[in-house]
Design a protein around this nucleic acid. Structure first.
Length: 564
RNA sequence: UGUCCUGUGGUGUAAUUGGCAACACAUCUGACUCUGGAUCAGAAGAGUCCAGGUUCGACCCCUGGCAGGACAACCA
């Protein structure tokens, strides 16, 4: 299938990004014997989102391109926030995206090694136990403009530090009573170098190590060493860790361990989308969305439920590029990538979302014809199906106008249209209720136009979709719109809740009539409903009640014209 | 006001110092079409944050500004 080639095509066509250049230079110079090993290091404290997808595609993609491998490593150094629920979802999402990790590791696997290295640092006089309170530590760290003040405990003897640190591990102290700090420079211009905390005391159950430990390493004391233990050659992270790199290197240097190197790239931002875990969690907790996998969420599981394909996301990740400057990608690029893929793979069906009854007065009562319809004009192998046609059908309300403007190519009084794969019909009579609402159209068909072509060769401008009234199945269709009304949802005046930018009309459910061939669909099946968009079967769908999610609309030129 | 990172069409991403700047999305035309879809063809849109400097020549190098972002959690 063509969409399988989406990614390879692109990667070979485009120019190299800065990371590819670095890696190629490293390979050329023989660094690490030409070996490439990357890692994807999520903290299991939330669900993965499209921003993580960029990072995943980058890390795995780079390794694949240069004959290397990628580890999955959970950065689980904070027992209070992490949970197996998250590790499972993360693994599922990575696999779904189409990647397989070489090794599955956990920072918690390295706790013993990390502990031993901490003792090494203490013995070298490079780490000390600090008894200051959290508050004191914060104040004495100084500010970006003022140097910090050394802790009164900064010059304890090696023996005392060792003793205290061992007793910390042994559980002799309560939470927050003491910490282990690296002894670097309290006046360092980089705040992170002002004797950063290496270990804190947390008497909490860890999702993997249980109650074995009551001291836990901080990110800076765990990440680089974990990379080093795994012999990661290129440790790729986002820009905000740039300032951490000097510390990353300090620990590796002082410990004299494998020199992994860190490189930073700009994280993905998407218009009309929030990406912070905190905010996504808020949307879930406050039930503004149905859950982490709500189809309006930018989470991988949300996109999956919405109907996105892994291919489209990988294609997108490739198209957004990799650089070091802050960026905001148009949501329309993501949608473009989606349509590009779905257009080639999704079978077409007919469905009517806002039905208008049409009676074909000259069609024999009781007659039913089975008409051939092409499943996918982009893919001959998809074949054809038959669609029942009868005297009473539904068409889309939008496809009829009593007083049409000049360029309206659809149905109107006296005007003729083609019913896709069926017949030409002409509207003769408009029936309204007491309120004046149009409730039915009486039309006549041209029997000679069966299949959609008329023998006299006359042209009909418009082709509309339809569904046979007596054969149609009812289904719920969830019409999603963007969750936020502003391109940058975070851009609110001070004091105003960011959630004020939420689009209150981001979900509309309609009862639709769909063609009978859709009877046995399963969750995640994807179709193009002709002229409407791409739709995917929701998890809530049952054989009694089918539920479709609108993944994305088709490009709608008419809407654009009509909007003017 | 300290350190670090970054400044190229609306949005992204390119351009061994030497062709006043390329590609994609978005936008606008037109062709074609049994999806106003897809496809195809074309247009408009930046003179590369600013100012100096080096050079025959700078998006690219140097200096100085300016702007945006990150960093002062016992989070990652």
């Amino acid at each position: 299938m063509a969409s399988e080639n989406l990614n390879e095509e692109l990667a070979s066509e485009r120019t190299k990004n800065f990371l590819e250049e670095i890696i190629e230079e490293d390979i050329k110079s023989g660094k690490h014997g030409g070996r490439v090993l990357t890692r994807f290091p999520p903290e299991p404290n939330g669900y993965l989102h499209i921003g993580h997808a960029k990072s995943i595609c980058l890390n795995f993609g780079l390794a694949q391109r240069y004959g290397g491998k990628t580890n999955l490593r959970f950065d689980d150094t904070n027992p209070e926030k992490e949970d197996v629920e998250y590790v499972n979802s993360i693994k599922e999402d990575i696999r779904w995206l189409g990647f397989q990790w070489a090794g599955e590791y956990y920072a918690s696997d390295y706790f013993e090694q990390l502990y031993e290295w901490a003792e090494v640092l203490i013995k070298k006089g490079l780490a000390y136990v600090d008894d200051q309170t959290q508050e004191e530590i914060r104040i004495n760290r100084g500010t970006v403009n003022q140097p910090g003040k050394p802790s009164p405990w900064r010059n304890r003897s090696v023996d005392e530090n060792l003793d205290l640190f061992r007793r910390m591990r042994a559980g002799e102290f309560g939470d927050g009573e003491r910490v282990l700090r690296a002894k670097i420079d309290m006046a360092h211009p980089n705040m992170l170098m002002r004797d950063p905390i290496m270990y804190r005391i947390i008497h909490a159950e860890h999702h993997r190590t249980g109650s074995k430990w009551c001291i836990y390493p901080m990110y800076d004391y765990a990440h680089g060493q974990s990379d080093s233990i795994e012999k990661i050659t290129h440790s790729i992270c986002t820009l905000e860790f740039d300032v951490h790199r000097v510390l990353y290197e300090w620990f590796i240097e002082k410990l004299e361990i494998f020199p992994s190197r860190q490189y930073e790239f700009a994280r993905l931002n998407l218009s009309y989308t929030v990406m912070s875990k905190r905010k996504l969690l808020e949307l879930v907790r406050e039930k503004i969305v149905m859950g982490w996998d709500d189809p309006r969420m930018p989470t991988i599981c949300g996109l999956r439920r919405r109907g996105y394909t892994p291919e489209s996301i990988r294609y997108f990740a490739d198209k957004v590029g990799v650089a070091k400057r802050d960026n905001v990608i148009d949501l329309s690029l993501l949608e473009f990538c989606l349509r590009e893929d779905l257009n080639k793979r999704a079978e077409r069906r007919m469905a009517v979302l806002s039905p208008l009854r049409v009676l074909i007065t000259n069609y024999p009562e009781g007659q039913v014809e089975e008409l051939d319809a092409i499943n996918n004009p982009e893919d001959d192998a998809a074949g054809t199906r038959s669609v029942p046609f009868s005297r009473e059908i539904y068409i889309e309300q939008d496809d009829f106008m009593e007083n049409p403007p000049k360029k309206f190519f659809r149905l109107a009084p006296g005007q003729e249209v083609r019913l896709r794969y069926a017949y030409f019909i002409r509207c003769n009579e408009v029936i309204k209720d007491e309120q004046g609402n149009i409730i039915q159209l009486n039309c006549t068909y041209d029997p000679a136009s069966r299949g959609g072509n008329s023998p006299d060769g006359r042209k009909v401008q418009g082709t509309i979709h339809w569904v046979s009234a007596q054969h149609a199945i009812k289904a719920d269709v969830r019409l999603f719109d963007r969750l936020f009304s502003k391109p940058d949802p975070n851009d609110v005046p001070e004091g105003v809740d960011w959630k004020s930018t939420i689009n209150s009309d981001s979900l509309r459910v309609v009862e639709a009539y769909i063609e009978p061939s859709l009877k046995n669909v399963k969750p995640l099946d994807k179709f193009q409903f002709e002229r409407l968009g791409y739709f995917s079967v929701d998890y809530d769908s049952t054989s009694q009640k089918l539920v479709f999610n609108r993944t994305v609309t088709l490009k709608d030129t008419w809407a654009k014209i009509a909007g003017k």
